[in-house]
Design a protein around this nucleic acid. Sequence first.
DNA 1: TTCATTCATCGTAATATTGCAATGTAACAA
DNA 2: TTGTTACATTGCAATATTACGATGAATGAA
Lengths: 110, 110
Amino acid sequence: MGLAKTEIFSDNQNAIAKFAKAFAHPARVSILQHLFKIDSCVCGDLVNEIGLAQPTISQHLKELKHLGLIKGSVEGTSVCYCIDKENWTEMKKLMTHFLDQDLSNSADCC
Amino acid sequence: MGLAKTEIFSDNQNAIAKFAKAFAHPARVSILQHLFKIDSCVCGDLVNEIGLAQPTISQHLKELKHLGLIKGSVEGTSVCYCIDKENWTEMKKLMTHFLDQDLSNSADCC
DNA sequence: TTCATTCATCGTAATATTGCAATGTAACAA
DNA sequence: TTGTTACATTGCAATATTACGATGAATGAA
């Protein structure tokens, strides 16, 4: 099928899956790390930094933008992208809460 | 293509993507949350809790097991699954480091 | 205007993912 | 043994993802 049955899961579960998908490809991980490292905004030199074709990078950027994790603004002929801090912080809270589930109460039974 | 060019990315980036993929489906998120909530190990009643067919759940469990996030042991006719705490902790460290990148140094230029 | 640059979008091919019915397998019960 | 129960595996259909060449749109330069 290739189609997830999102209806039967909670909003929380779907939200986690949605954001996790953003990180589920090394190119998008790389793009985000780059936008964090460069403290001014970065434009299409992502294409040079990462070894993928321009349409491919553009597509990954579109997905990240759609999720709200980054935002872009046109500057002349180039486009400047950067992390959307508010949304990143909110996403981080969601993911951290999921990752931080308590490991202590369950016995190591397996 | 549908094939990620993993060669051109760092081990760190590929590892993050690999674990993120585990969380990129609400069924797997649900399974993990369940294994955390039930403080004793859980067997195939995951099929009842989640509304997916048995082969589908079995497949998701296999993926999580392959990644090392859960482990299973046979108990009579049923199989008991639980979180692999060591690997979970290690994965959490990796993901948290990625999520915790500093937001303060970059100006909000977009 | 014309040209070059930068990026987005379209179209397409290759591969991956999701889901389930059908079937296989291993353990226990009778 | 035969049956039953609990999972795993196989095989397949539907859809999603990844990647890129070709092309389009917008901006600035000449």
